[in-house]
């Protein structure tokens, strides 16, 4: 079959360009969303996504169908962890001692329900304050709407781990939001 010279830009291999663009590029937002929430910084997210996309392009030959989003998000996540351990050893490891954050349901009184601050600003802050492994699972589940199975294959964890992480992350988030709304309540004019 005659090979035409396509007008692809230099960084992309012409042969791979079209398929890569069709399969991987639609998930650029997903990649950015995860990287941005993990790094909490535009410039760092930029580095992570750029590196992850280059890796994705490099490994694209070995991508054998399946869910391209899961595949790309796993690369983004690995890239983030590699770059972080390189740049700031220990920072990322942020060990979460599950005993320190036990899964206790604070008495969920109907009152507490009204205290939950769910405006964008509070949510964003509370989410950024979560330790990375919890933030990650919340972002994948709630923002990216991945199933437990998809999260498990992105993070390389067992489904049981995903489930308990998610439960703890949500309890913690809820706690943060209740605390914040307590402060806000003082300014409430009612």
């Amino acid at each position: 079959m005659p090979i035409e010279a396509p007008a692809a830009p230099p960084p992309l291999q012409p042969a791979i360009g079209a398929r890569f663009e069709a399969v991987v590029l639609p998930w650029l937002d997903a990649a950015w969303n995860l990287a941005r929430w993990l790094t909490r910084d535009d410039a760092d997210a930029q580095d992570v996504v750029q590196e992850a996309m280059l890796r994705a392009l490099r490994y694209f030959d070995s991508f054998r169908g399946g869910d391209a989003r899961v595949w790309l998000l796993a690369i983004v996540r690995n890239t983030y962890f590699t770059l972080c351990t390189k740049a700031l050893p220990g920072h990322l490891l942020e060990p979460i001692d599950e005993d320190v954050h036990p899964l206790v349901d604070e008495q969920a009184s109907p009152e507490a329900l009204t205290l939950l601050a769910v405006d964008i600003g509070s949510l964003r802050q509370a989410l950024e304050r979560l330790p990375a492994p919890w933030r990650e699972v919340i972002v994948l589940r709630e923002l990216e709407e991945c199933s437990y199975k998809e999260i498990a294959s992105i993070t390389g964890q067992k489904i049981g781990t995903v489930m308990s992480r998610l439960a703890r992350a949500r309890e913690r988030l809820k706690l943060e939001l209740s605390g914040r709304s307590g402060e806000a309540r003082r300014h409430d004019l009612r």
Partner: peptide, 22 residues
């Protein structure tokens, strides 16, 4: 009540403004 609270939290997290676009 606990369930409703988490439902509410979930709903709040689904706000499109939280999603970061490239």
């Amino acid at each position: 009540a606990g369930f409703r609270e988490h439902q509410r939290l979930r709903h709040a997290l689904a706000q499109p403004d939280l999603y970061r676009h490239a």
